[in-house]
Amino acid sequence: MSDDLRLRAIGAPGDSDPVVSIEPAEAEMHDVHRSDLDALKDGATMLTQAGNRVAALAVMWSAVAIAPTDLGAHRRLAAMLANAGDIDGAANEYARYIEFMIPIGDVGRATMELAYGAKVLGDHPAMHEAAEKIVTAVRALAPGDLAAAAPTLPMPRLLPKAPFRFCIHDDGDRHWMQLEGGTADLVPTAVRLLDRNDEVVEMRKFIPLAAGQKGHAKIVEGEPNGVAWVVLGVSDEVVAALDGGKPSPYRVEAKVGEEWISTVLVDTGCRIGRRPSRVAVS
């Protein structure tokens, strides 16, 4: 029995070998009809057995042209070129196949084919070039300089929350929330109301409170005087949530400097009736 890999690849019989055929993978065929490719490979085998190697090569070139990633067609063509004494042509065919595998992300198959080609042909410049392309593709999967080139990320910092007292005024068909607060370190310049989707519903500018000036909202014991105040329109849904001590469906953010920060809202109970103070974090 012959151990010549090139004879096995083209399907040429050895002492008692049957014709060996490497079938193409179904996923690689795309729109190419399997019957057409099989017919070309079978025709090349018959021409080779009849001794017409020139015609067989022409047929296999056609097979590779219509199915450039078919493993069976590629190996038969490379083996036929090598058997005809065209070692350069065979090496270039292995290199061509490898170059087709790399762009489609099949580096594993490219590596296996390089090992197979090197075993069949031995040392050849085309195989060295193909090996370098595989190495480059592997390095691209996890570039070694990625960590060194990446900028040093700043340490995360916790933003403070601006404290505010609020009261609710009923204006018939609408409710108004009056906010008073901020501190000497967190002086707010604007406020915005955001819905569940983080869409801005309303935005207003704060009005400064002079030192010692008392606002409208009742001061909660232990809380410092505010430094600014503003009035926002709020919906029945917001008021119902506040009255029920539930999380508000809307979020209030204050602009301090160039940043929008969260707020801590303290209910003073300043509206129809008095209620115990509750704290809501937005």
Rank of each mutant, 00 (worst) to 15 (best):
V135C: 00
F206R: 02
R165G: 12
V191R: 01
P208G: 14
I207C: 09
M155V: 15
A137K: 05
L193N: 11
D123M: 00
I207G: 03
A150P: 00
A130K: 06
G122N: 02
D171Y: 11
A150M: 10
A184P: 09
T136H: 07
D195Q: 10
L209G: 06
I134L: 01
A211Y: 12
G181F: 04
H128A: 01
P143D: 07
K205P: 00
R157A: 13
G182H: 05
C167R: 14
V201S: 06
F206E: 04
T189I: 12
I207D: 07
E202Y: 15
A184T: 14
D123K: 00
V191Q: 01
E180V: 11
G215M: 05
A137E: 04
D195H: 11
G144K: 14
A211S: 14
H128K: 09
V220Y: 03
G212H: 15
G215H: 04
M203F: 09
T183A: 08
L153Q: 12
D185W: 15
V120E: 07
H216G: 08
P163G: 04
E202A: 15
D173S: 11
V120A: 08
A137P: 01
R192I: 01
V138E: 02
L158F: 11
A126C: 05
R204H: 05
V120F: 04
R196W: 14
M127R: 02
D123C: 00
L159T: 08
G172A: 01
A210D: 06
V120N: 05
V191E: 01
G222V: 02
Q178D: 11
L159R: 10
H169A: 15
G144L: 13
C167T: 12
P151I: 14
P188S: 06
